[in-house]
Every structure is written in C-alpha cells, then in structure tokens.
Design a protein around this nucleic acid. Structure first.
Lengths: 248, 248
DNA sequence: ACCTCCTGTTCCGCTCAACGAATCATCATT
DNA sequence: AATGATGATTCGTTGAGCGGAACAGGAGGT
C-alpha cells in the first residue's frame, strides 16, 4: 500500500530530538516530490495526525496521542507485570522498565524512574536499539532462531559508545552467552556511564513477549551490584512469565 | 484524501473499552466493504500501526505508541505547566490534569492522580467530552466566539449523568457564567459523584491553549472546598499563562 | 525600490493504486 | 454431510492520487 507507506515514512521522520519539521525538511528526508509531501501533510493535519504550527512547521498531532494511549492499554503484559515492576523499583530504587519488540527496535511500555538525582531516564513509548541495550539483547537472545537471525542481519549495529557491539559475529556470541546465563547486561554500550541488566519474559507457548530491566549510573551499578540485580530481574521475569501462562 | 479518511475511521473504532476488534466488527462499524477493510488492516499491520492477535482480532500497534510519546514531548505547554501541576497536586492531594482541544474532545496531556484510595482517574492521552467536564467547559468558554459557536453546534451533548448539560441554550448560558467568573465547575455532570474545577490557560496573543483542573469524589470536594480550589487552579493557570507569554 | 533566492502553494492532464463485487477457503456447529 | 459464519483472494475497472511545472510571497541583499 503505497500511500500508507508514504504516510508512515513522513511520520517516522519525527523523533524526540526532532519534534518539528518543515515541509522542505520532510521533502529532503523522505525523498518524495514536494507536492506529494505537501498534499499528504495537509491531509494529515486535516485528520489531526499532524499539527501545523504558526511558524509553518509540522508537529505530531494529538490524534496520535490518543491512539498511543489506547495502544498502551490494549497491552495486557503491562497490566500483568505492573506489581513486579513496582516491587523491583521499590527494592532497587533504580529505573525499571518493560520493553517489547516493535519493528526492529525496543519500545518501552512501562517505565518507573529512579528517585535518585542521577538516574537513567526511560519513558513509556521511548524507542531504543536492540543491539546496544540490555532489554534489546535479552529479547533478541530468546527469539526463535530464524527470527533472531533475520533481525541480526537487518540491524544497522550503529555505534553509540566505545563498548557498543558493532559486529554481527560478536553479537551472536553475546546472545549465546545471554541465553546460557539467563540475563543480559548492557555495560555502557548504549550510553556512557549507564549500565543495565535485563531478563526475558515468556508468554504462553513459551514464546518471548517482553523483557524487563534495571538501569542506572555505572557508579551505583557496580559489577557486584549488577550480579545481585540480575537475580532480582530474573526472579521478577519468571514470576511475570508464570502469570502470563495462567492468563488465558 | 479518501484513503487516509478510511484509515482514521478504522483506527477511531478502537477505544479504551474496546481495545480489540475483528474484521467483521470493523466492516460493520465503518460501513466500508469487506475487502477494503481487510486490505487496509493488513497494510496497517504491515506498518506496525495495528497488531493482529493470534485470535485474528486487531489491536492498535506499538508504532502508534511511539508516535504518541513523541506527540507528547512536542507539546511545550506540558513542560511549562509541569511545576504548577505538581504544586496543585501536592497541596490538594487530588487528581490534577491538563487538557487541550483535540478535534471535538478534550485530550489529557498531563495527569497526576490523587494518592487517596478513592480518587478520580485520569491518564495521559485520555479523551473526554467538552460539554460535561470542567476542563472541556473552561476551554470552550474562552474560545473565540465563532469557534465556540461552531463547536457548540457540532457537539452531540450526550447525557452521562442527571446533571449533564444537554441543551445548547443551557450550555451557552453556562459558558457565559464561566467566562464571567473565570473558572468552570463540573458538578457530577460527567460521572456520578465526581466533581471538578478548571481554569483556562492562555498562550501568546491571548489565545486559549489548554485548561487545568482538580478532580475528586464529591464527598471531599464539597461546594466550599470547590471554592478554595477554584482560586488555586486560577492562580496556577495564570502563572502558567504568564510563563507561556515569556516562552518565545 | 528592485532583484534574488528560498519556501510553500496551486494547477492539471496522466496513470496506476486502490477499489469492491464476486468467489473461494476455513472452521465450527448441527 | 450440510450449514453458516468469518476471513482470504481474484481481477477487471476507474478515479484518487500523482508530480512536473508554474506561481506566490516574504526575507535579505544590493
């Protein structure tokens, strides 16, 4: 469906660091002809999916906000996992979040931030790479072989820090390790001085559906602390998985 | 744009109480031919805007969640109003939320729930009617005359409780009153035993951009308490408005 | 005041993307 | 085995969407 693909390619230009775009920018970045982008944007404004600000720049509209809120409530893992997430948050006082696979990225469907002044920030709806985060790697590691391989091949493996895994071969080894030990670690691979530990959550038929993680500044999440937290997240993940099995 | 309108009319079928829909239901409720709905839904699934569950029913997809999160951050009122909202919440210990106009409804862009066991629930992204809520009436009241009239004519004025205003004439009178006293009250008009009080927030050029409210159970929000809270929300709204003027 | 450049807007004839009636497939239920 | 309900597919038709080209308008320079 051509038109829909174009709509998505326009909406996808917007991100948290670039919340507004001009017609020209959209034309350049989508590679579509100017009248086409113009017509589409005006139609999207008409439907409330975009807003045209007074300065003529486009911003994602409130219609999408409404859809987002509904998309969130239709996700039952979120509801089921809530108590365990709160518990982890209370015990560790670090940022805890729950991520699922969306296209070739992780998207957070629940997030509780650490009360500490210095903390890892995560918000619901935030997207993050698969290869450089604990949540992403945990999810990737426990996917069925074929899907995992397809994703590994399709990923860009962009470098974010010195520690980011950027070779497919290294990523495969890392995922094997994660599978054997049952949890994933992000040792400052996505952001400087931030460490995370994540564990997989399985739904009925044993298929991985999400992963849960604890994130924080490296100075608090020392490697010893990380070990402790690893068993905590694994326990929480197992509890949630068990609840998922019973939720038919 | 025909196709886009159809896409929106499909996505609009989903709500917080009906998070999943079958092909048949969508066909019936949109009035579109079956192959058309089928083709569109499959394309939307392809793009991640819908998810087709194992049971064949459709659910709003994570792509929309991502867009929603970005739409939220592109809203600067939210950022500007955050401190005042937190303050109101801390003082009153009731549910406080910030709403803006979206199509012919109110949509919440910020919400802090009361810590009390019995509380009004509001979440970000939630939609609410204009004519039966304090936030809605406050917004409506301070719109430019022509827009206000257009909206009043277009609204359905559906009845939710005994107190809901369902006549256009009464609504106009109510809005006049709200304009003269500077704040709006919802006296169990949207939900039984829930009262709210809301005040308008103006942006540069004095145009109304949002409204802020306190909501809670009627037994705590007595008419006397409501008066107190009215000055609180008005003060907060004025502070936020002033900040908005300076935010160029 | 005039020109230039840049961005957004509109026009209009062409074409293929989207359409939808009809049909088929699948799976419970009787 | 027959029936009914729902989802999936086919395919000839057509107007919705396309995009090159031309236009408008404002900012900045000369």
């Amino acid at each position: 469906m051509k038109l829909l693909k174009r709509i998505v390619s326009i909406l996808d230009r917007f991100s948290n660091h670039r919340t507004s775009l001009s017609l020209g920018e959209l034309v350049q970045e989508t590679g579509l002809p100017k009248p086409t982008v113009y017509r589409l944007c005006e139609a999207l404004v008409e439907e409330g999916m975009l807003i045209k600000r007074d300065d003529g720049r486009y911003v994602l509209g409130t219609k999408l906000l409404g859809y987002g809120a509904i998309a969130l409530t239709s996700n039952e893992i979120r509801r089921i996992a809530a108590p365990e997430i709160q518990e982890l948050h209370a015990i560790t006082r670090e940022t805890v979040h729950l991520g699922i696979l969306s296209d070739k990225e992780i998207i957070s469907i629940e997030a509780l931030e650490s009360p500490h002044g210095l903390r890892a920030t995560r918000w619901v709806g935030q997207r993050a790479p698969l290869h450089s985060t604990a949540v992403g790697k945990a999810l990737l590691a426990f996917l069925p072989h074929s899907e995992r391989e397809r994703l590994i091949e399709e990923l860009k493996l962009r470098r974010y820090t010195e520690n980011t895994i950027t070779s497919r071969e290294k990523l495969r080894k890392e995922l094997d390790e994660i599978r054997s030990r049952g949890y994933a670690i992000d040792n400052m691979e996505n952001e400087e001085e931030v460490r995370c530990v994540a564990a997989p959550i399985f739904g009925l038929n044993g298929r991985i559906v999400a992963s849960i993680s604890i994130s924080g500044p490296a100075f608090r999440l020392t490697s010893q602390r990380l070990q402790e937290y690893a068993s905590l997240v694994m326990d929480a993940a197992k509890k949630i998985s068990r609840k998922m099995q019973m939720s038919i």
